[in-house]
Design a binder for these strands. Structure first.
Lengths: 333, 333
DNA sequence: ATGCACTATTCACACGAGTGCACAACTCAA
DNA sequence: TTGAGTTGTGCACTCGTGTGAATAGTGCAT
């Protein structure tokens, strides 16, 4: 760093090491043709000056910036927030920089994606169901690698890393049956994606295998207040157990049951295993999507597509697991 | 966009408009010397080709990228997540692109800041108490504008936009006294910052003005489980009302009181007015920091420092307001 | 026609880094 | 001394854009 605030350039390093700028560049890129002596001299000079390469310039020349666009909606949902945090961490480990857009309007998302393109991102990671189609279109015309996380709805031609909702539904069915439930309901989200439906059919199918059938099916938007209202109709059917497509729905249901104060609440299973689910107040059995793994795979997939633009599209499915808590403990009534 | 996926450059626009590349550049930068006729021709050509300027190249030439680094910790705290979402939205409106680092380790933060510098960010916005000192140091040596959000602890020489914790404390004291409370406790966070302390003293001072004194003072880390444990000692003092430095603390306290099941719970006031506070289960009176305003001001401040590197450091204080809910309704006992 | 003022456009260089190719320096054999 | 072979460096161009200074074009008065 210069005293006037200007950054150190490779030219300064070159001068201090009594060598040309080209050689500095080669040392930094590990070119084997450079002799040990000069390599050491250059590294020493770079170190003394505190040289940090200008990644913008490098990006321009290399046609690869190391920047990855991340599009996410609804950060107020702790699931998304947590996923974003993990994504950013994993990207850091791979030396990728996340240029993030978070918003809830379609216009906003579209202008944001245009901006991402202008910044020459190497790839885009999307965790934003409502905008999938716009994003897919934009990345196709911009021919940028795209990885959808936790979404399947795109055409087969786009890479996606998702959870196995059907398997989760089956696990939940097994668990509830083992816990002694005999009548079942499903409390789903009304998102336009197939996520909720996949969980539901996995659940229903496995129930059928146990010779039970799925009773009431309700849906609601994925936020608390509407879910709380919808919960009433779920409860009115008085099922032994309810599988919810989301922890927010599950908590709304639990709260509604608590307030109703008539008889024991149903067993409840949530989805996402959010921090709130673990609070003693809810003590909610929940499906954990293994976000740790899902985000790792997502970043790895994006990275692979950056390195090899011919890489085939990847469709990965991460196995979820069930975290059993008090909300599905058999009642001693 | 070319068929082979290469981006359209200004050169292509120039050729299509039968004009030189310089003129294209001037049209886009609104140079008044360009005649209306050619301006229209250039814009038409750009439009037909779908030209989007390469902001990386522009950034290199202009020594200003339009990228702003955002450093944030603990996205699992919904307050931080919400603040980040708002920051990103406001930045989008100002045509700034957020390069985000989110993490909880100091080493991670330091390497991330170094990376931000390499990407030649125009400024840094930090919402990360634990790393303030590293960030301040890094921005100083890199001579990058820095705006701390909701933190005051830096030296006076760094710009900061924060809430008025003392005023909030006073408002809460007024409110609780008006509601009939006579004995008071404070449940604070043990962060190294002065945030919690500021709220506490504002509270205590106003209580004193009402001729009351602050009784029990407990502290805990800002996450649920430790708070839940610490809540027991708060309750053991049996105060009429408790002011909590954070909604998480407040909810932990409310849950502890609910579980204890001995007598009416104290009145409880939280801080941050998170979405959870509004849920009927908690119905928590809470201080709203006016994040909308705080984030707007933060972004505006950063932008001003980008445009004018000589801009004076700014220290803004945003007035909070109190959202009254059921947790401070007078008991009819 | 010539000079002058004024406008619209182009030329050529810069930003900071990466890289193919030419070439300098050195070794070794004849 | 000359030639070939090997090794390490440097020149010069490139990435896509912005911009000061030079130039071409126009109108008008002399």
């Amino acid at each position: 760093m210069h005293s006037d605030g200007r950054k150190i350039r490779s030219l300064e390093v070159a001068e201090r090491a009594q060598i040309s700028r080209s050689t500095v560049s080669r040392v930094l890129s590990g070119d084997p043709r450079i002799s040990e002596a000069t390599r050491a001299r250059v590294l020493a000079a770079a170190d003394e000056l505190g040289y940090q390469p200008n990644l913008i310039a490098r990006g321009l020349k290399n046609q690869s910036t190391g920047i990855v666009g991340v599009v996410v909606t609804d950060l107020d949902n702790s699931y998304h927030a947590h996923a974003l945090q993990l994504l950013i961490e994993k990207m850091g480990e791979k030396r990728l920089a996340p240029l993030v857009f978070a918003g809830n309007s379609v216009e906003g998302a579209e202008s944001a994606i245009a901006r991402l393109m202008s910044y020459q991102v190497d790839a885009v990671i999307a965790l934003a169901a409502p905008f999938s189609q716009s994003i897919i279109a934009a990345c196709r015309t911009g021919s940028k690698p795209l990885v959808l996380m936790n979404r399947h709805e795109g055409e087969e031609s786009v890479s996606a890393v998702g959870g196995d909702g059907a398997a989760a539904g089956a696990m939940v069915a097994d668990h509830l049956v083992a816990r002694g439930a005999r009548s079942f309901a499903f409390f789903g989200g009304d998102d336009s994606t197939k996520i909720s439906m996949e969980r539901q059919t996995g659940f229903a199918d496995r129930l059928a295998a146990h010779s039970f059938s799925l009773g009431t099916v309700c849906t609601s938007r994925y936020s608390y207040d509407p879910a709380r209202r919808a919960a009433v109709s779920v409860l009115s059917a008085a099922p032994d157990a309810v599988f919810c497509a989301n922890d927010t729905l599950a908590m709304a249901l639990a709260d509604a049951a608590r307030e109703r104060d008539a008889g024991p609440p149903p067993m409840i299973v949530g989805y996402d295993n959010s921090a709130l689910a673990a609070r003693p107040l809810y003590d909610l059995t929940s499906v954990d999507q293994n976000l740790e793994e899902m985000t790792s795979r997502t970043v790895e997939t994006a990275l692979a597509m950056v390195f090899d633009s011919q890489a085939p599209t990847v469709r990965l499915t991460i196995s979820p697991f069930l975290v059993e808590r008090g909300s599905t403990r058999p009642r001693t009534s």
